[in-house]
Amino acid sequence: MTMRLIFSGIAAVLLRPWAHLGTILGVSATVLLCGLLALAGIGLDGAFARSQGVVRFQVYWQKGSDPALVARQMDWMRALPGVVEAKAFSPETALAVMRGSLGANAEPALPGGENPLPYTMLLGFALPGEDEGFARETYARLAGVDGVAEVRYNPVAIDAMRTLGLLGSRAALPLAALLALLVGLVVGNTVRLTLLRRREELEILRLVGATPWFIGLPLVCGAAVIGFLGSGLAVTLLAFVWSEVAGNLGAAPLWLDMASPPLWLWLALIGGPTLVAALAGLAAAMESNA
């Protein structure tokens, strides 16, 4: 009997998905928005944490520089004191990275296939304390290398990232609580109102002698299915958005290394709304009994 009730609740949603489409999309939209905020917060927080204390310089050589000389200069740069990361790009590898960032619809190569990009190198230095003088001196050393056309270095951006990282870590808990509350209110109320449209049917079931269990269990199961479908759709979209965004942020000019979101976040984004929806189903059942 119990299994039959569970299946009837699930079937009520799956056999008439169009009747619940609006609710499922509403749940999806809410979870998607909250998930985007959570992913952004967690991803950026991780990126900031990794970039704290590291100042990055991007070095551009003149076009047509001697590859052998550039290779020696790159080795010298890698050996500079305080270097914690170094990424070197030949014109070919830089073009490949740019193609990957711009997508299939844009072609960075000049007409005739000429590569406009020079040799470049991204260097990350560990900052000794808050020593801004170190950053300026390093900039001068790099810019003075023979054949180097330009060195980009933005201490203001680094400070801003550092501040944002600090703010992010302090705001993480309140933000998470706010997001959970938002999901709870929107998902819960949307599902509850959808189920209460069946008030007449529930009333008839009560009048013919249905137990509270007979009425409540299918409602809870149906609501959980709505929550699961809605959040599942949202998480699928989120995974797609994440793969697109993380790839672009990891390339020039931001070089933000966005690590994959943790498994618990995906599980929470699906499990949380599903649980909230099930509770809303329970609330609807109790409300219809009142």
């Binding site: 009333e203 008839i204 009560r206 009048l207 002698g209 509270p212």
Partner: peptide, 22 residues
């Protein structure tokens, strides 16, 4: 008790003027 109302309704049926059918 309200939780046992269903027992009464299994012994007592009702026909309504507005039918109350699905």
């Amino acid at each position: 008790r309200p939780s046992k109302l269903y027992q009464l309704r299994r012994d007592v049926s009702v026909v309504f003027q507005d039918f109350k059918i699905l």
